[in-house]
Amino acid sequence: MLPREHRLVSGDDFRQATRQGRRAGTRTLVAHLWVADGGGSPARVGFVVSKAVGPAVTRNRVKRRLRHLARERLTSLPGSAVLVVRALPVAADASYDELGRDLDSALARLSR
C-alpha cells in the first residue's frame, strides 16, 4: 500500500498531470509525470485502470501490482511530482516483472 501522503486522490490533480505533464508510453502502460512548481509536497502517484483491461478481479490485480511497483520507485521521483500510471489492456496478461520493466522504462524516459 502507498503511504497516505503519496496517494493521488484529487480529480483535478489527475487532470493536470495528464494534460500538462510529460508522457511516456510502453507496451503495457502510459505514465504521465507533472512536477509542480511549489516544491514542498511529497511525490504523489495515482493509477487509472479502465474496464478495457478486464473484469474487476483483473483490474484490481493490475492495480495492486502497479501500486507495489510505484511504492518501490517513490525515491526516484522528484519532490512535488505527480505521477499518473494508466494501464493498457495488455497489462492484464503481463507479469509483475514485465510491468516493472515497463514502468522503469517509462520513468527513465520521463526523467530525461
Rank of each mutant, 00 (worst) to 15 (best):
V85T: 06
G39F: 08
T58D: 02
R109W: 03
Q16L: 15
S105M: 09
S76P: 00
S41F: 05
S10H: 14
R61D: 03
R7Q: 12
T58W: 01
P89N: 09
A31R: 02
T26G: 04
V49L: 01
V45H: 01
R59T: 02
N60C: 05
R61C: 03
S41I: 00
M1V: 09
E98H: 13
A43Q: 04
A24L: 10
R64I: 05
F14K: 00
A52Q: 14
L74W: 10
R23K: 15
G100V: 06
P78Q: 11
P89T: 13
S95M: 07
L2F: 06
D12F: 01
P42W: 05
A92K: 07
Y96M: 07
K63F: 10
A24C: 11
D104A: 13
S41L: 15
P89K: 04
A17I: 07
V57I: 13
R101L: 10
K51S: 13
L66M: 09
R109G: 02
P3E: 03
L74G: 12
M1H: 11
A81E: 02
V9A: 14
L77A: 04
A52V: 13
A56G: 07
A70T: 11
A92Q: 06
R65C: 08
F14N: 01
L33T: 08
A87P: 10
N60L: 03
V62G: 00
A92W: 00
R86I: 14
H6A: 11
R7H: 05
A17N: 03
L29F: 06
V45Y: 01
V35K: 13
M1Q: 09
V84A: 06
Q20M: 14
D104E: 14
A52L: 11
R112D: 08
S10W: 00
R73Y: 08
A70P: 11
P42C: 04
K63Q: 13
K63L: 14
L107W: 02
R44L: 01
H32W: 06
Q20H: 14
L8Q: 09
R4Y: 03
H6L: 05
L74E: 08
D93L: 14
R7V: 03
R7Y: 03
N60R: 10
L83T: 06
A70W: 05
D97Y: 00
L83I: 09
S111F: 07
D37S: 15
R101V: 08
F14T: 07
R64Q: 03
S80K: 02
